[in-house]
């Protein structure tokens, strides 16, 4: 690109602006890491919890959720590394980042005071997860994530209807269709 001003017509200027703005697309592949990590962890926890309650008489089956603690650490470290290595961030990247931080803040009191509602928190978690997944899909212009968000909303609503044990199964399936499938599609670059 030159500094030439002579032959730059208004239409060429507008075309140049459009072309440059189009180049500032979010890094979709980078976003897939979080969906795959949390998709696998939460699907495993939900399926594990279901299996432990259904097929064993373990006293504290919910202990399986402790693996989310190292998952948080990995998430924070990865985000720090990504943010530190590249200051090239679009406004939409920033909005997307704060959207998910806001979700984490929303979920925190649910996790701390979950015992007040006998840990029947699947619906309370899946519904806002649906919101963030849906909005992220819109921001990244990635339809599978938009559909993923809708699946989370359906799953969250289903959790009000099914038994407490089956809620975990609903949660596991929601993660597969809401996070894992869109996550793998994001990573492979499919739209």
């Amino acid at each position: 690109m030159e500094t030439n001003t002579e032959n730059l017509t208004p239409q060429e200027s507008l075309d140049l602006i459009t072309r440059m703005i189009r180049q500032t697309q979010s890094n979709l592949t980078q976003s897939s890491f979080y969906f795959l990590l949390w998709g696998w962890v939460i699907a495993f926890c939900n399926a594990g919890m279901y299996a432990l309650i259904k097929f064993t008489d373990l006293q504290h089956p919910y202990a399986i959720w402790l693996i989310t603690i190292p998952t948080w650490v990995v998430t924070i470290l990865y985000a720090k590394r990504q943010g530190g290595s590249s200051p090239n961030r679009t406004h939409l990247d920033k909005i997307n980042m704060w959207l998910w931080i806001a979700l984490a803040i929303t979920i925190c009191p649910v996790l701390v005071f979950g015992n007040q509602v006998n840990w029947l928190i699947n619906a309370i978690i899946l519904l806002p997860v649906g919101l963030c997944t849906f909005v992220s899909g819109i921001i990244l212009r990635f339809k599978p994530l938009v559909l993923g968000g809708i699946i989370f909303w359906i799953a969250g609503t289903l959790c009000f209807i099914v038994s407490p044990i089956d809620q975990h199964l609903v949660g596991a399936f929601a993660m597969i269709f809401g996070y894992l499938i869109p996550g793998y599609m994001l990573r492979s670059g499919k739209k």
Partner: peptide, 8 residues
């Protein structure tokens, strides 16, 4: 045009 849609 690049910077208008970037934070940095």
């Amino acid at each position: 045009s690049l910077l208008i849609s970037m934070d940095s």
